[in-house]
Design a protein around this nucleic acid. Structure first.
Lengths: 250, 250
DNA sequence: GCACGCCGTGCTAATTTATGGCACGACAAT
DNA sequence: ATTGTCGTGCCATAAATTAGCACGGCGTGC
């Protein structure tokens, strides 16, 4: 049960998204696949309406706008993005750091769905669609702290991958950390996933208390100041609450 | 050169997006395909990270957030969406009708990429990702009127499909209409695509004058008043110009 | 001006791959 | 207890994809 051609087509689609506008040759080098195979795949994706030829260089491929019809369930209908944008902008204006909105996906990872940039010359950078682990990030732990016990145990049961020397990989320590997150209303991550990247996050909740997303203040370690933590934590928690309220209000 | 399995997988993916969260059985009825085929496809899409099981009903499938990594070239990097949102909201507040932002795709169609709703009980509805033809819509003609001659001729060379009794299908008439659009700075569509739906649109231009997108005021025919046309046309054209300027400013 | 190399494209036989009918276990309603 | 429906897994057959090769166009450098 494999469907090799489908798997490969999706990989190629993702590669086009990353490198668009891209040529057949560049993709063959990227994957080490025969030219004909790559080209056949591109033509198929094109006929399905997912790819289009670049306007100026018709031998280069790019992603068509039709993919917008395929929207994640996490954003479906719900006005999560619309409700979050204004509060996120206000939060950015207060702290002048990059703000992310991330949603949980596949039970052990988070995906960035929106971003408001800080104006600092040195900033952290995560693109929309970027993936990060639940246990090693501030956003992920803000989600986990608000997740039902059974789902949480399921995540903690698996081996916790380490990404840096400070990553929490012991389930017991992680549980203690999650207790702290619950008590504070916000989660903190100092260099535990990407070295040099720190974050403070709080969860956006649905009406039933289940976590929908996390608002994240992300900054370089060079600007991370423990003394500001209570203030930043309060601000990010207030923003998350405001988004929860706005989403339910409309 | 067909890649049947890939084509079908993408169709199924799109169907999941439309009906999520959806079960295997519902999809088999939709496509009339054998159960095993559909399920194998779903599992493959899941393993590739594009699908995930619904949290509450694990036999239902939905789109994962990872698809956000695949973004259309038309929105890539460019802050088109960000630049457009505030002006669109202001336009909506002025006219209280639904505002769309659409981008051209595949040389003969438009795709809705953003939407700000009117507050009327009766409103027009086009979802993000919806597709419409270039020649029969206000947005499409706003784009065509700003397109280079060679590309425009290519579109006009094909047979122009008719969607209602008022659709312009004669290339000569369409050319005359496009001249009018150029002169006015906005395009108008009265029931030419979807019966009962009228629209007024203007193009957002890139620095080189090529059309990037169209801002569209969309309303039911019942509220369409020819006397307001000059005012609405002026407003939508101003909004489009403002978006063009904001996009280049940042 | 010529030859070379690179690129995108199309073809075809060989082989891998997907297909879909069928069966099983679980669950819900009758 | 029973019937219908659902999701899932298996396997021989049949059909699909594969990848090597060749062609034509294009730009470069000799």
């Amino acid at each position: 049960m494999e469907m090799k051609s489908v798997t490969r087509s999706l990989r190629i689609l993702e590669a086009v998204a990353q490198h668009q506008p891209v040529t057949v040759g560049e993709l063959t080098k990227l994957f080490g696949l025969p030219k004909s195979t790559v080209q056949r795949t591109l033509v198929t994706l094109h006929e399905a309406g997912w790819l289009r030829a670049n306007r100026k260089d018709t031998t280069r491929w790019e992603i068509g706008a039709r993919v917008l019809a395929v929207r994640p369930a996490a954003l479906q209908g719900s006005s999560l993005l619309a409700a979050a944008r204004d509060p996120m902008i206000r939060l950015r204006d207060k702290v002048n750091e990059t703000i992310h909105l991330s949603v949980p996906d596949a039970l052990d990872c988070m995906v960035v769905v929106d971003r408001i940039d800080s104006s600092h010359a040195v900033r952290t950078f995560h693109d929309i669609g970027d993936i990060s682990p639940l246990h090693a990030t501030a956003g992920g732990r803000a989600i986990l702290a608000n997740t039902g016990k059974s789902d949480r145990d399921e995540v903690l049961a698996r081996p916790l991958e380490s990404y840096s020397e400070t990553t929490l990989t012991d389930p017991q320590q992680l549980r203690a950390e999650l207790e702290l997150v619950s008590a504070n209303g916000y989660a903190v991550n100092r260099n535990q996933f990407r070295p040099g990247v720190c974050a403070i996050a709080s969860a956006v909740l649905d009406s039933d208390g289940s976590p929908l997303a996390a608002v994240v203040i992300s900054m370089p370690d060079s600007r991370y100041d423990p003394d500001r933590l209570p203030e930043l934590g309060r601000l990010v928690a207030e923003t998350a609450k405001e988004i929860s309220a706005r989403r339910l209000g409309s």
